[in-house]
Design a protein around this nucleic acid. Sequence first.
RNA 1: GGAGAGAUGGGUGAGUGGCUGAAACCAACGGUUUGCUAAACCGUCGUAGGGGUUAAACUCUACCGCGAGUUCGAAUCUCGCUCUCUCCGCCA
Length: 425
Amino acid sequence: MLDIKFIRENPEVVKQGIANKNDKNRIDELLELDKKRRDIIAHADELKSKRNSVSQQVGQMKKSGQDATEIISEMKRVGDEIADYDGKLRTIEEEIDTILRFIPNLPHSSVPVGKSAEENVEVRRWLPEEFKFENDFKPMDHVELGKKLNILDFERGAKISGSGFPVYKGKGATLERSLINFMLDFHLQNHNYSEIFPPFLVNKESLRGTGQLPKMEEDMYTIEKDGLYAIPTAEVPITNIHRDEILNERELPIKYVGYSACFRREAGSYGKDSKGFLRVHQFNKVEMVKFVKPETSYDELELLVKDAEDILQALNIPYRILMLCSGDLSFSAAKCYDIETWSPAENKWLEASSCSNFEDFQGRRANIRFRNEQTKKPEFVHTLNGSGLATSRLMVSLLETYQTPEGKIVVPKVLHKYTEFNVID
RNA sequence: GGAGAGAUGGGUGAGUGGCUGAAACCAACGGUUUGCUAAACCGUCGUAGGGGUUAAACUCUACCGCGAGUUCGAAUCUCGCUCUCUCCGCCA
């Protein structure tokens, strides 16, 4: 959520930022409501002030035995008038809130302006030693490999739950679990995060806090009876850990890492890149979340990307970093880097991680603040998060790049102590 | 699922209709004292929204879990909800 004061004072900046995000703006309408709101408050507060002082008089009159009937009936009228203003105010504030919650975060000045994913900018790439984009043999894709080695079962997953709910079997299941543990341990040991194991179902307020609601309602699985939603990412529960809190400045930055299953309806995206793991309704992800002081958030973003990259380098998997252009940024993000890993069989890059700085957008929505030691005043924290990483797309790259000409999978060295086997055949 | 108790500022906790934005204590912060540390003493110390100001000062309003209601006036009375704790039942 943007600051209404900022919008009031910089309407053109806000409009431009929204336009760069390919969103439509209702800023003029918003500012009109804002003006109305302040008028009503001024009137209502004046009446309330009057009521307060007169009511006190009534008390004193009664105590001294004087008759206050006339004042009381007048105050009753004032009370009705106040109720009237308060009613109007509530309506207007709801309207303002609705508009405000649909306004996206503004892109940071370093973000290239662009319409769509085509205009994202490749920042750098990292390739293992002796890596070649051309294989000496025709690589199998992950679905074939999964079937041949009996480690993935998409058909049975579809039987149990529906398409997009993969079943991992045997060494495939062990490999998945090992990957998750490896990534968690790596961040804990090398990057100084503390671990969170969050709830996978959350309430509405949490989703509003991180910005999935109201806009992404259709993309979420719901459990209506209890008013709960299946999390699309661990970002939601982990960021909301500190909702409605004022943190101590000295605690910052707070860095959490946590595993969760992630659930996405992916409404309307059937048919596109939907083979096997490329688009699923349930996948596993290790997520990093940071709460930081505003002035450090862009440095923290670079470090966050680095933390995710370290995992891929340890696994020796080729990847590249993209800086998203304004039009491809998510609703809540001010700046975002995607990490894409290479798939030899698809012959293309696959998004395996997304690292974003939300600045104070989530902080304001979720009311997460810290007390500035200089000014003694609470300020909104900046929040960041990044996948470190999502296993499904990563698994595609891993299986495909580690396959041998005979169709076996060599397990990456760093995973051996977790899997306790070195080859899948 | 059943029965009961509770929810007040960073913490403990007082407060049952007007003198309470809220006692007291603790913590924190500033200061005095002091070889050092400690102690003692003095002071400051909630959040949000209007108005005001270059910025402050200042001023008004709201907030005692959340939402309605009663009243001239609600932390305090009524109703609904949520959460926490204790006991019973069920259960991984």
